[in-house]
Amino acid sequence: MEVRVQNIHKEFGRFPALDDVSLDIRSGELIALLGPSGSGKTTLLRLVAGLETPTDGTIYFGDEDASRKTVQQRNIGFVFQHYALFRHMTVLDNISFGLKIRPASRRPTSTDIKRRAMELIDLVQLSGLEKRYPAQLSGGQRQRVALARAMAVEPNVLLLDEPFGALDAQVRKELRRWLREIHDRTGHTTIFVTHDQEEALELADRVVVMSKGKIEQVGTPDEIYDTPVSPFVFGFIGQSNILSVRVESGQLWIEDRSIGVSAAGEPDGPAQLYFRPHDIELLEDCGGCIAGIVTASRRVAGTRHVELDIGATQGKVEIELPPEKTATDRSRIAFRPTRWKLFRS
């Protein structure tokens, strides 16, 4: 089901948690809300769920205005950060709960409920554990139960709050891939909240980057990474270097040196140059470049990270080189960004 968020404002007391947020989510999409803590991503998720009420604005499920509906009426599936399993119920009872409590008119027969729950247990690969209690499961298994429980009610939209936050790195990676598979198989419209960019970029169809109660950018993982629209997104996603430059007659200048990058069409004046450590080319001789002295160099997996001191006013930048390229301390390296972006304050 499509979910449309329109001009949502949310204030806690006087603190504005969300400020005029609008977002269209297509049916069947897997979408990530990404941002640092306090960016409002969890609040947005809880508003869609109906666990919070907007101060202002509307939320549509399909063509229907859902914002006046209670959480119970919205028929959503919510997976909580700490799973919130009912600890006095078995795995099977946890998963059947949402169906069992329906009023008699809408409740499937108990055999149907059981069949549906067992299907889900199978889907989340917990067959044989249906009689266990949550206390007898591992973190990853609890997570799967929580997901199956949320899917049992055939939700309009599946909402996950930091679904992998409480798991260790290994299990996290595994479950991430598995969640993508489940999503592709079931096709639920899914929104998940995360502060982990790797998770968002790997898993989601589209990523919503949030900061300070506002949406900074919405786009596919490639768009978010390759063409960030704001300094915040550039800085938040991946590694980046920031240099103070000057635009003058279509060229970029650091102090009185041209760095050999043409910025045709940019108006003259001071600006911030953003570029990623790996979006550079090395230059043998410097007729317009950025040059610096190597102050540190370390090998990280398939690349060499080199820290350069490029002069007192700019400080240090980090670039990535192929591992076979040596960079001895105090040696001089000249380079030029190949892909970059200018932001003006």
Binding site: F12, F15, G50, L51, T53, T70, V71, Q72
Partner: peptide, 22 residues
Amino acid sequence: MAHDSSDPIGHHGNSEMVASAT
């Protein structure tokens, strides 16, 4: 989370709709 301080018999929620949930 903010309390509804105007309500002497308050609950740890902050509006009518949320109140219905928890």
